[in-house]
Simulated scan of single mutants.
Amino acid sequence: MNICNRNCCEYKINSSYIKWLIEVLGPVILGSKPSEILNISSKDKDKDSKLNDINSFFSNCYKLSYYIINISDGGIRIIFINRSSLSNVLDNKKCLNFLKFIGYPSDYNLDSYIELLIDKLHTKDFPHEIGIFLGYPLKDVVGFMGYGNYKFCKTRYWKVYGDESISDSVYNKFINDRSKMKKLLESNSLSQLKSVI
């Protein structure tokens, strides 16, 4: 085993890409958002480099799990999951009942739910229930999928249906955690952040 004494991860990875990614993942790392999905196009000439950087930086991460999903057009989807935060979301009986209603196992198990979502992400039909896994309010996911009588209001990172105040509160938590992570990036090196992520 080689032990680097020169902050080697900063030399081996594209710092600007990883810094951007850590900022995007700020809400997931800090726990306000249970997961985030990232797409890398098959046309992205830096696709392999980005994937190597992600593996290099996040391979021993204790706050996040990540899954790489190859899609039919040659692109990649990567889902980053804060298991503790996702478990809290899925502890909500309404979320769990809705997922069961659309075909998730009746016996809830976090790993089996993640596996089913990942299986669905391999298909052409995008699983819109991913909004629950991304931490969006259930009413917005249900409204987007055409269930219930929720009226479309506006678009944030997602389409908002029904009571806007609930969605605004969730959105503001995501934005605040992203800002916190940006400040951490400004005052810490990648190797310092890697040791706590």
Rank of each mutant, 00 (worst) to 15 (best):
S72T: 11
I13W: 07
S169L: 15
S165G: 01
D46A: 13
W20D: 02
W158A: 06
I102F: 06
V160M: 03
N60S: 05
Y62A: 05
R77D: 04
K12G: 13
S187K: 14
N172F: 11
Y150V: 01
G146V: 14
D73A: 01
Y67H: 10
K63C: 09
L116H: 00
F98A: 00
D125E: 11
D46E: 14
K93M: 10
C9K: 06
P127R: 00
F98R: 00
L96H: 03
N172A: 12
T155Q: 13
D140L: 14
S85L: 00
R83M: 05
K151P: 00
L193C: 05
L86Y: 01
S87G: 02
I175K: 12
D111E: 14
N5A: 10
D140P: 11
R156A: 11
I13S: 12
S84D: 14
S189D: 11
I37E: 01
L64V: 01
S42C: 12
L193Q: 01
E186T: 05
Y157V: 01
I54M: 03
F57K: 07
K159R: 15
L117S: 04
G135A: 09
W20L: 09
I22Q: 04
V28Q: 04
S106T: 12
C61V: 09
N14K: 11
C8A: 03
I118L: 15
D46P: 05
S179E: 15
K159H: 11
L185C: 07
Y66R: 00
I54H: 07
K63W: 06
E23F: 01
K151N: 13
G103F: 10
D125A: 10
G74V: 07
S169V: 03
V141Q: 08
G146Y: 13
I69Y: 04
F58D: 07
I71N: 09
D91H: 13
K45E: 15
N88G: 02
L116F: 10
L185V: 00
N7H: 14
G31T: 04
L90F: 09
E10L: 02
L190A: 01
Y136V: 07
Y108S: 09
D140R: 09
F58A: 03
L25N: 01
G143W: 06
D46G: 01
I197S: 05
Y157D: 15
C61A: 11
G75S: 04
E115G: 05
F126N: 04
L185N: 03
S49W: 07
D48T: 04
G26L: 06
F101C: 04
N109I: 05
